[in-house]
């Protein structure tokens, strides 16, 4: 099972290498280490978000509210910074994590205590969180000139050859890797996705674990909120509108099964990188950016077809589906 999972990520990695190779034939500079570092940095936020979404999807749930959470938290942090420029950035990051955690905990509470399907809960909070952003900001934008230089530059500072944003992504990836493979909660998350009934008998509190994964995805949404706003230096109600589907797309391309229980940190990261490479490459090889949506759509369909073939080889898919229903 484990070698099989590695197998799939190696295929995805191979696909990415081929993609970079193809792009390089049109634009030789693309495969330069400096450019690849740039692509990694550009994709950092999507990678972080995909990891947050991954833990939710692994438990057979979904979080559609991540982009709205990002928008709300980003606005709160930006307004805080505009009003009190003296607050140090690490404090703002803690605030972002805390606000995101609260929003995620609301989702998790409704899923855990009221047993409402996560897709319904987060469909509701998707509109509520974004709407609340409008109420909090009064519809106004926070522009670059209202933000403190520290706020904008924190993630751009180079440290050991990489910007801080890349380092944050690397730390988050490492943390997720440790949690998913080396801790009891990580194993519980997989167990719930594979077989919730058996998990109960194994002594796992399914509801509480789901609450925790929504808290995780909420915190990630909050962290991404600060990173997004300070990267694109504008906070408005429209920030990351519709981005929740990009996050899920990254997970799907990364081989995370929407039926739960299958997927890995490496897969989510590679899935996000795949989308990041496409969006970075289109302008340099002179394809209109309007093609990007159709290309990522095709990539999602292709990925899910290939992944489904892989899953079917394990057999008994009908029984697993029946259990889910």
């Amino acid at each position: 099972m484990k070698s099989f999972l590695k197998y799939r990520e190696i295929w995805l990695l191979a696909g990415i290498v081929v993609l970079i190779g193809l792009i390089s034939t049109r634009f030789p500079g693309f495969a330069d280490p400096s450019n690849l570092r740039q692509v990694f940095n550009d994709t950092s936020i999507l990678m972080i978000l995909a990891l947050g979404q991954m833990v939710v999807i692994l438990t057979r749930s979904i979080d559609l509210s991540m982009a709205s959470n990002l928008c709300f938290t980003g606005m709160v942090v930006a307004m805080l910074n505009a009003a009190h420029p003296a607050i140090p950035i690490p404090v703002l990051i803690v605030v972002a994590l805390a606000v995101g955690l609260v929003l995620g905990a609301i989702n998790g509470f409704l899923v855990w205590r009221l047993n409402i399907p996560s897709i319904v809960v987060t469909l509701g909070t998707l509109t509520i969180y974004r709407g609340t952003t409008f109420v909090v900001s009064g519809g106004a934008w926070v522009n670059a000139d209202q933000m403190s230089p520290d706020f904008i530059n924190f993630q751009r500072v180079a440290f050991l050859g990489l910007p801080v944003l890349s380092w944050i992504a690397i730390i988050v990836i490492a943390l997720f890797f440790l949690v998913m493979t080396r801790t009891a909660i990580g194993r519980s998350i997989y167990a719930i996705g594979v077989n919730p009934t058996a998990s109960v008998y194994a002594g796992i509190d399914v509801g509480r674990t789901k609450f925790i994964v929504f808290c995780i995805s909420g915190m990630i949404g909050g962290l991404a909120g600060y990173l997004w706003i300070s990267r694109y230096v504008i906070a408005s109600v429209e920030v990351a509108n519709g981005y929740e589907l990009n996050i899920i797309a990254a997970c799907v391309i990364g081989g995370i099964s929407i039926a739960g229980g299958i997927g890995s940190v490496g897969g989510a990261v590679l899935g996000a990188l795949f989308l990041g490479i496409i969006s970075n490459a289109l302008p340099v090889i002179n394809i209109s950016p309007f093609w990007q949506m159709a290309i990522s759509g095709s990539a999602i369909i292709l990925a899910v077809v290939l992944n489904a073939r892989g899953e079917r080889r394990q057999g008994r898919i009908i029984l697993r589906k029946a259990e889910a229903a």
Binding site: V252, W291, M293, S296, G297, I300
Partner: peptide, 18 residues
């Protein structure tokens, strides 16, 4: 192809509008 509809239609959503 026996694919989950939520994922398929997230894909075709990007494809059609794309």
């Amino acid at each position: 192809l026996g694919l989950p509809s939520i994922v398929v239609t997230i894909g075709t959503m990007s494809l059609f509008r794309g």
